[in-house]
C-alpha cells in the first residue's frame, strides 16, 4: 500500500495542477484581472505573471504525471502552493472581495475553505517532493551498484 502512495499522490497532484492551469490559459485576460484584485503585485508584473504562471503549472503538472524531473516539478509545485496560500491569507485578512482564481475565474470569495484546501495540497506536494528525492537517491545508489 505504502509503495503505491507516492505515485498516486504524484499523479493526483500533477492532475490538479494541469486542471487548474486550463481556465487560466484559455482566459489570460480574466486571470490577469483576478491577480490584480489581490493587490499584491506591482501593476507592471500582473500581466507577465498571468501569462507565464499557468504554463508553469501545466508543465510541472505534466512532469509529475509522467514522472519526469519529479524532484524539480514537486519543488516548483510546493513553492507555488506556499505563494498561493500566502496570497490568499493576505487578501482574506485585508477583506478584499476577490475570487480565489484557483480553478475558475469566477466562484466564491476567498474563505477559510480555500486556505484549508490549499494547505492540503501543500502537504501533498511536500510528501511528493520528499518521495521524489528518496526515489532519486535510490536510483542513484542502484546505478552505482550496477
Amino acid at each position: 500500500m505504502k509503495r503505491y502512495l507516492y505515485p498516486l499522490l504524484r499523479v493526483a497532484l500533477g492532475a490538479i495542477f494541469v486542471y487548474a492551469s486550463f481556465h487560466k490559459i484559455l482566459r489570460p485576460d480574466q486571470f490577469a484581472d483576478g491577480i490584480n484584485n489581490y493587490h499584491i503585485l506591482p501593476v507592471f508584473l500582473v500581466n507577465l505573471v498571468a501569462l507565464t504562471l499557468p504554463w508553469i503549472e501545466l508543465m510541472f503538472g505534466m512532469f509529475l504525471i509522467f514522472n519526469f524531473k519529479a524532484p524539480a516539478a514537486s519543488l516548483a509545485v510546493t513553492i507555488m502552493m506556499v505563494v498561493f496560500i500566502i496570497a490568499m491569507i493576505s487578501a482574506w485578512m485585508r477583506g478584499i472581495d476577490t475570487g480565489c482564481g484557483c480553478f475558475s475565474n469566477e466562484g466564491e470569495a476567498i474563505s477559510i475553505k480555500e486556505v484549508v484546501r490549499d494547505s492540503g495540497f501543500l502537504i501533498m506536494s511536500l510528501f511528493v517532493f520528499a518521495g521524489s528525492i528518496r526515489n532519486g537517491s535510490k536510483e542513484n545508489s542502484q546505478a552505482e551498484t550496477l
Binding site: 490559459i25 485576460d29 480574466q30 507577465l48 501569462l51 504554463w55 501545466l58 516539478a73 516548483a76
Partner: peptide, 26 residues
Amino acid sequence: WGLLASAVGLCVNLVHPHKIEFIRTP
C-alpha cells in the same frame, strides 16, 4: 524548465484570441 514554460506562455499570447498586453496599463 520554469523559464522555458514562461517563454511558451509569452509566445502563445501573441496569437491568443484573448491576448493581453505584456505590461499592464496602470
